[in-house]
Structure formats: structure tokens, C-alpha cells
Amino acid sequence: MLTTHFVRALTLATTLAALLPAAALAQDAPYPAKPVRMVVPYPAGGATDFIARTIGERLSKSLGQAIVVDNKPGAAGGLGAGEVARAKADGYTLLLTITDTQINNTALFKSLPYDPQKDFAFITQVVRSPALVSVNAETPVKSMQDLKQLVASRKGKLSYASWGIGGLGHLAGESLNRELQADMVHSPQRGEGPVVTDLLSKTVDIGLSSVASAKQHVQAGKLTPLAVLGRERSTALPQVPTLRELGFADPLFDTNVWIAVLAPAKTPAPIVKRLADEIRAIVATPELAAQYTERGFEVMNTTPEQFAASYRAEFGVITRRMRDFGVEAQ
């Protein structure tokens, strides 16, 4: 007669034997085995949404699974970024965001629901969006030299607009303000559209927006571009010099707003590599690269290693300037 101990052991062994094939099958299932969610921490219809959907449509074909773009706006992008930071690190939840959630927000908010330096794995920076310094075309200012002369005659009487407090436009505008000793008043807006509107209506003297938002008005002769941020000129406006070319030395002027893809920290390296390889191949296609350039973006298409290196360098430059300029946490 079988003892109770033996029966229990036999039952346990039988149960484990039944579970082993299923466990092995789950472990051997190739990635991805189900749809992938790409969280965009900004509203639908913006630049991040556009990039996410153009990539998602093509990525779904190359991976053989649906890519679900999920817009989660709120808290200056912090709501969606925090959700991805807390997600399971299995490659099925991704973040497509801009520089602000990963750098600027650390100085803008006293507390964040995520740590941008520790909670994410770098996949790739897709594009950068060069910032543009421009004025209304009806003004006599046609170059940065003209602006210097205008500042000399109207010190303390000029204003500049940016897309929001603590954003790159604000920081670059304030750095320019100090280098020119212009004593300009900052007019923060909620987005780039209002900046361009203010320029067109002459509500402000100088505006900092993206090339993408101002390009059509430059081409129509309504805005005069003076300079772009970044180490290289904009492909969309190649005639416009960089601030660096014009002799402005602040390292901040070498930076740009980028749009990138990240995953939760501890996502397995093979999955990160697979995603990076697939997305970079998509972005490198002439059709999509041309589409991005036409919109005023510059293709970056970095490797995870390149992304990590540039992120760490920019983090120090941007947060230091935010402290220097007295941008206070909310």
C-alpha cells in the first residue's frame, strides 16, 4: 500500500512534468509573440504622434505583430513616461518621446514618477527637430548682425517667445539674451504654434520654434530665419547658419530636441538590439527619410550606444543651464 508521503511526491512529480512542456514552450516563444504597445506621452496629432505612427505602421510588418500607438498626455509628458518606466521589461511596452521628459523635466519638477537616468533602456533616437531663431520679415532685421545692432538701440525693450518655460527654446533664448546683453523679456507659450502666431502678428520681436513649425512661413516670405541650433545646418533650411557658425559658444546651442524610442530598464539586451535594428532599418529607407526631411526633421537613427552617450552629455549641459538661469521646479 502506498504511503501518504509517496502519493504526494508522485502527484507533485506528475504535476511538474505536465507543466514543464508549457514552460519550455513559453520560454522558447520568439519575440514578439503578441502586440507591442508604443506609449506617446503627448496628444495625438503632434510631431511625436506622427513619428510613432509612421514607424509603428512599418514596424508591425517587420515584426509580424501589431504596434499599438497609445497617446498618454499629461504632466508635461511625465504621465506616459512614468507608466512605461513601471511596465514589465519584456519588450512589449515602449516609449516614444522627446528630450523634455528625459532631461528637462528633472529640473522642472520637484518629483517625477520615474527616474529618466535609471528607469529606461536606450533604443534609438529617430530624428532631431532643429530649433530656429526667427523674426517677422517686415522688420529690418535680416541677420544676426542686424539683431545685434537692434539690441544696441533698443536694449531692454525687446521680447522673445519660446514654446514653454524650461524647454530648449526658452534656454537657448535666455542664453542668447545674455550673450547679447539685450535684457529681453521672455514670453512663454504653450507650444510652437503660438510662437509662430506671435511672430506673424508682431506680438514679439524674436521667436524660437522648430524649423518644422516655421518652415512654411519662411518659404512664404513672412518670417526671416536668423540661425538654427545644432552642430549642423538644417537640411530643410540649408541657407541658415548655426549659432555656432556665428560665433556663439554656449554648448547649449549644439543641442536639439530629439524624438526617440526607449524601453523599460532591464529589457533583455537581445530584444533591445532587435528593436533598434528593425527601427533603424525602417528610418533609413529613402522614402521615410525624405518624408521626415520634408517636415523639417533631421534623421538621427542612432544605435543604442550612441543614444546613451549623447544623452548623458546633453543631460549635463541642459540641466546645468536650467540651474544657471534660475528655472525653478514646480
Score class of each variant (00 low, 15 high):
residue 1 M to K: 14
residue 5 H to T: 12
residue 8 R to Y: 13
residue 9 A to I: 03
residue 9 A to T: 11
residue 17 A to C: 15
residue 17 A to P: 08
residue 18 A to G: 15
residue 19 L to S: 13
residue 21 P to H: 11
residue 21 P to N: 11
residue 25 L to M: 14
residue 26 A to K: 14
residue 26 A to L: 15
residue 30 P to I: 06
residue 31 Y to K: 06
residue 33 A to W: 12
residue 35 P to E: 09
residue 39 V to C: 04
residue 43 P to W: 04
residue 44 A to S: 14
residue 46 G to V: 07
residue 46 G to R: 04
residue 46 G to E: 09
residue 50 F to P: 01
residue 51 I to T: 07
residue 55 I to E: 01
residue 63 L to A: 05
residue 68 V to D: 13
residue 68 V to I: 15
residue 72 K to E: 09
residue 73 P to G: 09
residue 76 A to M: 08
residue 77 G to Y: 00
residue 79 L to A: 08
residue 80 G to V: 02
residue 81 A to M: 02
residue 82 G to N: 03
residue 84 V to E: 01
residue 86 R to D: 09
residue 87 A to F: 11
residue 95 L to F: 10
residue 97 T to Y: 01
residue 99 T to A: 02
residue 100 D to F: 01
residue 105 N to A: 00
residue 106 T to K: 02
residue 108 L to G: 00
residue 108 L to N: 00
residue 110 K to P: 05
residue 110 K to L: 10
residue 111 S to Y: 04
residue 112 L to N: 03
residue 113 P to R: 08
residue 113 P to M: 07
residue 116 P to M: 02
residue 119 D to A: 07
residue 120 F to H: 05
residue 120 F to A: 03
residue 121 A to D: 11
residue 123 I to V: 15
residue 124 T to H: 05
residue 125 Q to S: 13
residue 130 P to E: 05
residue 130 P to A: 10
residue 134 S to I: 05
residue 134 S to L: 11
residue 138 E to H: 12
residue 138 E to L: 12
residue 139 T to Y: 02
residue 139 T to L: 12
residue 139 T to Q: 10
residue 140 P to V: 10
residue 148 K to H: 10
residue 149 Q to H: 11
residue 150 L to C: 06
residue 151 V to S: 03
residue 151 V to I: 12
residue 152 A to H: 10
residue 154 R to T: 15
residue 157 K to F: 09
residue 158 L to M: 15
residue 161 A to W: 03
residue 165 I to K: 05
residue 167 G to D: 10
residue 175 S to F: 01
residue 176 L to D: 02
residue 178 R to P: 03
residue 186 H to M: 07
residue 188 P to N: 06
residue 191 G to S: 08
residue 193 G to R: 12
residue 193 G to K: 14
residue 194 P to H: 08
residue 194 P to C: 10
residue 199 L to E: 02
residue 199 L to C: 06
residue 201 S to D: 13
residue 208 L to G: 03
residue 209 S to C: 12
residue 212 A to K: 06
residue 215 K to Q: 14
residue 216 Q to S: 14
residue 218 V to F: 09
residue 220 A to K: 13
residue 221 G to A: 14
residue 222 K to P: 02
residue 223 L to W: 01
residue 225 P to G: 10
residue 226 L to Y: 03
residue 228 V to C: 03
residue 231 R to G: 13
residue 231 R to M: 11
residue 231 R to T: 13
residue 234 S to F: 08
residue 252 L to R: 01
residue 257 V to M: 07
residue 260 A to K: 00
residue 264 P to K: 04
residue 264 P to M: 07
residue 264 P to L: 08
residue 265 A to R: 13
residue 266 K to V: 06
residue 268 P to W: 07
residue 268 P to M: 08
residue 272 V to Y: 03
residue 273 K to C: 07
residue 278 E to N: 11
residue 281 A to L: 08
residue 284 A to P: 05
residue 286 P to A: 05
residue 288 L to S: 04
residue 289 A to I: 04
residue 290 A to P: 05
residue 291 Q to D: 15
residue 292 Y to S: 00
residue 293 T to K: 11
residue 295 R to M: 12
residue 296 G to D: 03
residue 297 F to G: 00
residue 298 E to N: 03
residue 299 V to M: 08
residue 303 T to L: 04
residue 306 Q to R: 08
residue 306 Q to D: 13
residue 307 F to D: 02
residue 313 A to F: 13
residue 315 F to R: 05
residue 315 F to Y: 15
residue 317 V to R: 02
residue 318 I to G: 01
residue 322 M to D: 00
residue 323 R to W: 12
residue 326 G to E: 06
residue 327 V to N: 00
residue 329 A to K: 04
residue 329 A to E: 01
